[in-house]
Design a protein around this nucleic acid. Structure first.
Length: 749
DNA sequence: AGCACGCCGACT
DNA sequence: GTCGGCGTGCTC
């Protein structure tokens, strides 16, 4: 500092504190400018790009990240506030910041919203001061003036057993006051030290041998290992039927990545159902991986986030949000069951975790493996284009063949039609169940519908019981004597009389849910030991485990379930699968309805006959000529994909064209329709793009909000993002009307 | 997303 | 006459 500082005449020549661009976790686009924090070098930047800081925003202090780009000089200096604090976390890597930018511009969500998914563990951002622990001091303290009182002795006895106590624990356990410990510390008899908490997950010991692989498993594994070691981007589809050993193959790739000192991310569709997967991992690698999902405790969240950012979580298994963790050295991504629709996030930032995983892998220069027995059509077309490679695992391990698939034709003019009052199980299916049970094997009845009956109506006036907040029927759950809405959670007692005409005892259930199938099965097979598995009967991991065990021990021999039974569990004595309503998923106008139905039924069918017994699958259908049924019967997955590709190609639908859904919602229908009309008038004419709508969204009333939907359809060469942006940027919606863009929509709800 | 500012009904 | 409802708009 020179003397001139005090004599500075012109304010504008005072050296400014340096401006930083900080991206905060608000749903806003651009970074905001902030002044360097206290203690920073005047006028000179010292915080690196990606540094995580805390900044004042309005009344609050929020996390933000030092971002690149030129400061916004249009914001007056006087408006700037100072960076509040610098966290002790490693800066976000360039690769992650670029990923955030990419996701934001692809999904059309503000950058701050995407960043928020990265900084999703507020606990993790707090500095880790560590806590003060106590142990025995160095024993050379032969200070004769220090008296060992009984209170002091108790403390010393405890510490002689083991160190690592906090003052509070020590005082409580010894029954002394804190001042005793303080006195001991002062005399040097006990020693206080700061323990930095250990935020790390164990590294699997190297050299644990996996099972011996078959020839094609070995070839696939070696290919993946080479790619991992090369350290380049590659997208590889691991294509093999259930039981072909995909998991063992990618475990080999994980082993190789561990050997390279890299981190591995495994994305699973539903982490809640993955305890079997975790057990399997532990068997293979001797340790448990880090988990990342919404049910983590705050403490584990913090530990995991920190460990990931410091490279101390070698393997992370998680739901889609684990894609946004700040990996220190990501060397491999696995997306298991890549076709699963639950990888598509539909709330908040809409993104598809499988597709974003490929983008992330590209940014990290590492391979990504997409594993499935029924790859998505998108994925297979990417294989055909040469964008993805494909490794095929043929055949089931252990010699079990694919099950035989039979169709039961339920049409009215066919002998197997179901007459009213007869129930939902055809003669053919009943016979097969009887045979199976008599042979001492297990049978499963699959119906992808929870509850007792999907619709309740009044015989007197025809009134249908509907959710007050959604365009949806209320589903009867007889176990609880309640009616439930499966979209918003609304629940009410089953009324005794019709709410519309007051007729007593006039309400009748229509159609079957799994509970009703259980009821029918009990009547038909009174001797059978029936078990029910649905998402609402498996409320805790313990309850799930118990049911699984009962099935494995054959305490259950007739299992009735929704799609939860299709996911991952394998029951060696199960030889018959009956699909009560194979057509169920085909309705609803979803462009992927056929594909999803095929995948689900294929997966359910795969439950039958894994061990020595050949399995048998019976599909009850009213549309036996449908390509889904025909290709399932023929066991010809690729034929199905071929037909589906042809259908979509003709319609210009994904992956041959591109889609963006524009959902407009609001609490007042008139205002909503009014604004939709304004939007419709503003639809631009763009070559290679069309915009359809507004149509009432299939659930035109959801959670008390009215919804309309536009659909942007483009040729592959035209980005729907650009179309949506140019259409919507000039339109400002009334405050109570919300417009959300969903790029690559999946659910058409 | 939060939080405050701002303009219209039932209470000390 | 105030307390408070949530509509609207901003946050460097």
């Amino acid at each position: 500092m020179g003397i001139g500082d005090d004599l500075m005449l012109f304010e504008e020549t005072v050296p400014e504190r340096c401006r930083y661009r900080v991206q905060v976790i608000l749903p806003v686009e651009g970074p905001y400018d902030y002044l360097a924090p206290d203690g920073g070098d005047e006028g000179e930047r010292f915080l690196p790009l990606g540094q995580i800081v805390m900044v004042p925003v309005g009344k609050r202090i929020l996390p933000g990240v030092i971002w690149g780009g030129e400061p916004d000089t249009s914001v007056p200096q006087a408006k700037l506030r100072q960076i509040e604090a610098i966290t002790d976390l490693p800066p976000l890597k360039d690769e992650l910041r670029q990923f955030i930018e990419w996701v934001a511009s692809y999904t059309l969500f503000p950058r701050g919203s995407v960043l928020k998914m990265v900084l999703s563990a507020p606990q993790a951002l707090e500095s880790v001061a560590g806590q003060k622990l106590y142990r025995q001091g160095d024993t050379d303290t032969e200070d004769t003036s220090f008296r060992i009182t009984p209170a002091r002795q108790k403390v010393l006895d405890l510490l002689a057993g083991s160190g690592g106590w906090t003052a509070v624990e020590l005082a409580r356990e010894a029954g002394v006051s804190g001042s005793v410990i303080k006195g001991l510390e002062q005399a040097g008899v006990v020693e206080g030290y700061l323990e930095v908490p250990d935020f790390s997950f164990p590294l699997p010991p190297s050299g644990i041998k996996g099972p011996v692989l078959s020839e094609d498993q070995r070839a696939a594994a070696d290919d993946l290992i080479n790619k991992v070691r090369a350290g380049n981007f590659a997208a590889v589809v691991l294509d093999g039927v259930t039981g072909s050993g995909k998991t063992e193959v990618y475990f080999e790739a994980i082993e190789a990545a561990l050997g390279e000192g890299q981190q591995i991310l495994v994305l699973l569709p539903e982490i809640a159902l993955s305890s079997q997967w975790l057990d399997r991992f532990e068997q293979r690698f001797g340790v448990r991986p880090a988990e990342w999902h919404s049910e983590l405790t705050p403490a584990l969240r913090r530990k995991t986030w920190r460990a990931v950012s410091e490279g101390k979580a070698p393997v992370v298994v998680g739901a889609r949000s684990s894609l946004f963790l700040p990996y220190e050295k990501l060397g491999l991504i696995i997306v298991d069951e890549e076709h699963e629709a639950s990888f598509k996030q539909e709330e908040g930032v809409c993104y598809h975790a499988r597709d974003m995983a490929v983008v992330r892998a590209r940014g990290c220069h590492c391979p990504v493996v997409l594993a499935s027995a029924t790859p998505a059509l998108e994925t297979m077309i990417n294989v055909q284009n040469g964008r993805y490679e494909r490794l095929v695992l043929s055949g089931r391990h252990g010699g079990a063949g694919m099950p035989d698939v039979e169709l039961v034709d339920l049409r009215f003019d066919k002998p197997e039609r179901l007459d009213s009052g007869q129930g939902w199980l055809s003669q053919a299916l009943r016979g097969a169940i009887r045979q199976t049970l008599e042979a001492g094997e297990q049978a499963m009845l699959f119906l992808n519908r929870r509850g007792y009956a999907p619709l309740t109506l009044c015989r007197t006036c025809g009134h249908r019981l509907q959710c007050p907040h959604c365009t949806a029927w209320l589903v009867e759950h007889r176990r609880f004597s309640r009616l439930q809405c499966h979209h918003c959670g609304y629940s009410t007692r089953l009324p005794d009389s019709c709410p519309s005409c007051d007729a007593e005892g006039s309400l009748v259930p229509c159609g079957p849910g799994v509970e009703r199938i259980v009821e029918e099965a009990k009547k038909l097979f009174p001797e059978a030991r029936i078990g029910l598995m649905a998402s609402d009967t498996m409320t805790s991991p313990a309850a799930t485990r118990e049911m699984i065990e009962r099935i494995e021990k054959r305490e259950v021999n007739l299992l009735v379930g929704t799609q939860v039974v299709a996911k991952g569990y394998h029951f060696p004595y199960l030889t018959l699968v009956g699909v009560v309503d194979a057509d169920l998923g085909l309705f609803g106008g979803d462009l992927r309805a056929a594909e999803r139905t095929f995948q689900l039924l294929h997966q359910v069918a795969g439950r039958a006959g894994r061990a020595e017994h050949k399995g048998r699958v019976i599909l009850q259908t009213s549309d036996p000529q449908h390509p889904v049924m025909q290709t399932l019967k023929a066991g010809d997955r690729d034929k199905f994909l071929e037909i589906e590709a042809e259908t979509r190609s003709r319609g210009g639908l994904p992956p041959f064209g591109r889609l963006a859904a524009v959902i407009v919602s609001g609490p007042e229908e008139a205002e909503l329709d009014n604004f939709c009309a304004t939007m419709a008038r503003a639809i631009p004419t763009i070559d290679g793009a069309r915009i359809l709508g507004p149509a009432p969204a299939p659930l035109s009333l959801l959670r008390g909000k009215f919804r309309r939907r536009f659909l942007v359809m483009t040729r592959r060469s035209v980005a729907p993002q650009a179309v949506a942006r140019s259409w919507l940027q000039g339109l400002k919606s009334p405050s109570r009307v919300r417009v959300v863009v969903d790029i690559d929509p999946y659910s058409f709800l």
